[in-house]
């Protein structure tokens, strides 16, 4: 299965009436996770988060694809 780049956020058992709601909910949670951290602490949190999610995904082909897309337009 290739990397999913379509909107894919949801929470099991939760009903959404507006398409934008699940993505907004994730984004709010992400910013909350960083609340009151210094820039250095935030960078650490981001690194740990990537590692946790990478292990959850597991499929290294997918992870390589995501890393390549993230690298685009970054240099």
């Amino acid at each position: 299965m290739p990397l999913i780049t379509a909107n894919n956020f949801f929470e099991p058992g939760k009903r959404y009436f507006r398409d934008f709601s699940p993505g907004d909910e994730f984004y709010e949670a992400l910013l909350e996770a960083h609340q009151n951290l210094t820039d250095e602490q935030s960078a650490q949190l981001n690194a740990k988060l990537i590692l946790l999610l990478a292990n959850h995904i597991g499929d290294i082909a997918i992870l390589r694809e995501a890393m390549a897309l993230a690298r685009e337009d970054t240099e």
Partner: peptide
């Protein structure tokens, strides 16, 4: 700075990727 970084990353990805446009 972190929320600005995420905001601009979303806007950068949005050009190509549907999931980011939704964010």
């Amino acid at each position: 700075r972190t929320s600005l970084l995420f905001r601009n990353a979303v806007l950068g990805l949005a050009r190509k990727h549907a999931f980011a446009r939704a964010l």
